[in-house]
Structure formats: C-alpha cells, structure tokens
Design a protein around this nucleic acid. Structure first.
Length: 296
RNA sequence: GGCGUGGUAGCCAAGUGGUAAGGCAGUGGUCUGCAAAACCACUAUUCAGCGGUUCGAUUCCGCUCCACGCCU
C-alpha cells in the first residue's frame, strides 16, 4: 500500500493563527486534500460557532472529517482517529497529499501516537464511577485508583474527577497498569513520512483575531444557529462548543448580548492558551510564523 | 463654596495598630476514549499623596489631591 511516498502534512496550532488559510494554500500547491483535526467541526448542524470552512472553499478543495455526526451524538478522540485514519489512507491511496489541519491537540496526538485498544469507553461503568465520585468525593476514588494502578494515580491530581474516572475505568476493565498498556500504541509517527507544522503568531495578535472572529460570528448568524438547536438534546461533547452555552444564556434572558460576546471571547482566549501549552510541549512540532510560507 | 462618604493589584473586593483574605482577568503547566473538556500552580516589599502620633500605621490624627452623593 505504501509504495507512494507522499508525506502527510500536519498544520496545527492555536485558534486564530490562520491554519485554515495555510492548509488551503498548501493543498492547492501540492494538490492535496484537507483532513480536519477539530473536535467540534465534526458536528453537522454547527458551522458558524466552530468556524467551519465555507462551502465555497470546500468546493475547491475536498475537506474530510467535517459534518460527520449530529449534535445529538457523542464524539471522542478514538472515533475521530478511526475515521480520520481511514480518510488519510484513502487520500494517500489516490496519490494525493493529506493535509491534516486543526487545533485539537489530543486528536492530533491520537493520530500520531495511536491509542491502546484494550479498554474502550464503558458507559455503564463510567456512570457508576461518576455517581461514586459525587457521593464520596474525588479523593476517595483517587485512593482506589492508587491501589489498582499506583503509577497512573501518581500522575493524576486528586481533584481531577475526569481523569480519575477514566483511570479507574481502564484499571477495572484491563487489569494491567496504564503505563504498561500505553506502550502498545502504534500511530502514524515513525510509520509514514510526515511533517508537523505549528502555526504561531504573537499572543496579542492571536487574541485580537479571535475576538474579532467572535464579532463576525454574530454577524454571520450565530444566534440563529444556536436558536435552531434549542429544541434538540445536545450530546455532552457538542454542548462544549464555544458559543452554544454563551448564546443559550442570552436566549434564555439570563444576560444581554454584550455579556454573551464577552464570555465567548474569554472562553476562546482560555482555549487558545491551552492549545499553546499542548503544542509547545510536543517536540515534533516545527513552528512556523504565521504569514510565512510553509517550509515544505 | 459647605457638609458627608469613599480612595487596597488590570477589574471587583475583605481587612486589622503588629506587618495585605478571596474572586475575576493574566501567566505558566498537566494532559492517552468528554479535550473548544477537566485539573493544577503562580501573581500587591504594598493599601491615593505628604506630614504627624506610636516601639510599630494600610488601619489613628491633620492637610492635599481625586471620585461620588447631598446642600447652597
């Protein structure tokens, strides 16, 4: 299958750096196709809030991993990995260059490093653990994890309910330490030729761009988009899209439009900051100042 | 002009004669099936300014400046 030497190009980085434009240009230059690496653009019914590429853009260059599920469905990094991997391989199979573009750090990591297959998500067990956390507190459950998998517990803060639950879920279903199981992963890194570019620009600029984009979203019908969702039961993951809770609060009359915008800008800035710490620590990322051409 | 109240970090704000709570913002970080999530850490040599009382003042007194309110 891989007699084709087409490298895979990754373009990652914080929101507002200009990844989409860079990916589009790169795709045109190399005759490539874009694979979105974004945890929220997968939702069919949301476009404005997650800054999805325009239909016009999508007509010119094929985009994958957009609109793959409904907002009523849960989504996660493992599902993403499976679908995105299939798309990447399919594109390479046709002799074209896959350009993976997006700001979801963990999704990128799952593609690059793989995951361990032994412990899938277990809804029932997870719900039970969450109840226990609610009743007994995080520290008690953290203690239980420490007994089952000391190495994993040592790395998880006793307040971090989310990770304690997952740690316990793995420990109880696999019966082997997470640290050991993690060695069995196999991802794209080291298997196929690929380059990882991180797009960056000064923090102040990033914040300015992202805040201007929030204003634009309102001009482009964000409120209507969110209103259209109001009758439906959104999955927990879809609820996290920046813009949905903020605008919903406004629609319910909890605060005014200015407040909704303020909250969206604030949450986006926080998000940008977290993206930066994620990508900064990955030594494989080759940083490129926004505006300059990809050093292919 | 007179009287009153108040001036504590970028913002909100507690506070005491004994050496500055907390929240927000900001910054740094963690991250392996919710990740646009969750979690952690750091952040005022200084309390409008100048004098005074005191062993010691952000806290008490005086004056100045500023803000707000009321009166004229």
């Amino acid at each position: 299958m891989s007699t084709i030497k087409t490298p895979i190009i990754f373009i990652v980085g914080p929101s507002g750096a200009g990844k989409s434009d860079a990916a589009f240009e790169t795709a045109q230059r190399l005759g490539g196709e874009i694979v979105s690496c974004d945890a929220m653009q997968v939702y069919r019914e949301v476009s404005v809030a997650c800054d999805k590429p325009s239909l016009d853009t999508r007509k010119k260059i094929p985009h994958h991993m957009l609109d793959v599920v409904s907002v009523t469905q849960e989504f996660n990094a493992a599902v993403f990995r499976q679908l995105a991997l299939a798309a990447i391989m399919e594109i390479r199979g046709r002799g074209k260059t896959p350009i993976v573009c997006g700001g979801s750090g963990m999704y990128m990591a799952f593609l690059l490093d793989g995951i361990f297959e032994v412990s899938a998500k277990d809804e029932g067990l997870r719900r039970r653990l969450q109840e226990e956390i609610h009743e007994q507190g995080t520290s008690v459950l953290h203690g239980r994890l420490a007994a089952l998998d000391p190495a994993a517990a040592a790395k998880i803060h006793p307040h971090d309910a989310q990770r304690i639950v997952r740690g316990l879920e793995v420990a109880l279903t696999v019966g082997r330490p997470l640290s050991e199981v993690q060695k069995e992963r196999q991802g794209l890194w080291g298997q196929v030729p690929l380059r990882v570019f991180g797009l960056d620009r000064p923090r102040k600029e990033l914040y300015e761009r992202v805040e201007a984009r929030v204003e634009q979203m309102f001009e482009h019908g964000l409120v209507d988009e969110v209103r259209a969702l109001s009758g439906r039961t959104l999955s927990r993951t879809a609820c996290a899209i920046i813009g949905i809770p903020e605008v919903t609060g406004y629609l319910k009359g909890e605060y005014d439009l200015a407040r909704a915008k303020y909250l969206m800008k604030l949450n986006t800035r926080h998000y940008v900051k977290r993206q930066l710490t994620w990508f900064r620590r990955d030594q494989r990322v080759q940083w490129v100042e926004a505006g300059t051409e990809m050093p292919l």
